[in-house]
């Protein structure tokens, strides 16, 4: 195996992270931003699974193969499982915040986000003027 293959999975992880980060920084839509964050997170899957892989090894499940067969690292696989669960719930939470932002401001563009005021009703907050008047 060539030297390029030695670092390719790590380079893929770095590339995914960079692309996701660029998407977050340049995003003009909060839903797109949440998607970009998921891309960033995929980089961690690629990195962790790449770190735990070994050529010629089986999955760390000793059902078809007897115990003792060379297997890949199960610790990073458990970590990736945690990672995916955290990512899914985090995405849901962020999408809910997006829904709330849209309801308050009527826009999904992060550029139009303004700090929230202390007012309890929309009428007392002069900045919520973009809300459609009835």
């Amino acid at each position: 195996m060539s030297h390029a293959m030695d670092v390719l999975p790590y380079a893929v992880a770095a590339w995914l992270f960079a692309v996701g980060l660029y998407g977050i920084a340049s995003s003009r839509n909060l839903i797109h931003l949440v998607g970009c964050l998921s891309v960033c997170q995929s980089a961690t899957y690629a990195l962790l699974l790449g770190l735990g892989y070994r050529w010629g090894s089986v999955a760390p499940i000793f059902y078809d193969h007897p115990p003792g067969t060379p297997a890949v690292d199960p610790v990073v696989q458990a970590l990736v499982l945690t990672d995916i669960v955290v990512g899914a719930t985090l995405t849901a939470l962020l999408l809910v915040l997006t829904v709330q932002v849209y309801k308050r401001g009527g826009s999904l563009d992060p550029e139009t986000l303004r700090p929230m005021r202390g007012g309890r009703t929309p009428d007392s907050a002069p900045t919520s003027g973009s809300k459609a008047a009835p």
Binding site: D6, R54, P67, D73, V76
Partner: peptide, 14 residues
């Protein structure tokens, strides 16, 4: 290097 070895903790668990 990718695919060369796995961490000792994982190997012990296996």
């Amino acid at each position: 290097a990718f695919g060369s070895r796995i961490a000792e903790y994982g190997a012990r668990i296996n």
